[in-house]
């Protein structure tokens, strides 16, 4: 097993942990954290492929991860603002009860 495969298996495991968390929990904040874990697994893949690429001097993987971290920060801010808006509306953040579009 090559080191690149080890890195890819690591990131797949992280992705699956985030997926299970996002699917199984009913708390909106935990679902968001699971999505963040999946995004981090994707970043890990970029860095792993850059580390073992034939031409690492170009730095495309690193640039991708920088932009991805910036977008993830924006996504976390908007997601948690949405959680707070849901909490104002229905006084809890259980996703099963957030089933009204207008009320």
């Amino acid at each position: 097993m090559s080191p690149l495969q080890v890195c890819l298996l690591f990131s797949s495991a992280l992705f699956c942990i985030g997926l299970v968390g996002a699917l199984s929990r009913s708390n909106a904040i935990l679902v968001l954290l699971g999505i963040e874990l999946m995004l981090n697994a994707a970043n890990l893949n970029f860095i792993a492929f850059w580390r073992y690429s034939p031409a690492p001097a170009v730095g495309t993987g690193v640039l991708f991860v920088i932009f991805s971290i910036a977008v993830a920060a924006a996504e976390a801010a908007v997601g948690l603002a949405l959680v707070i808006a849901i909490y104002r509306h229905q006084k809890n953040i259980r996703l099963q009860e957030a089933n009204r579009l207008k009320g």
Binding site: I29, L33, E36, I47, W50, V62, V65, I69, A72, A73
Partner: peptide, 24 residues
Amino acid sequence: AGAEFVAFAQVLVYVGAISMVVLF
């Protein structure tokens, strides 16, 4: 993996900022 800048960006953004937003 040798990506120092990304590591420090990860610490600043995730450990510093996103964790605080989540705790808030």
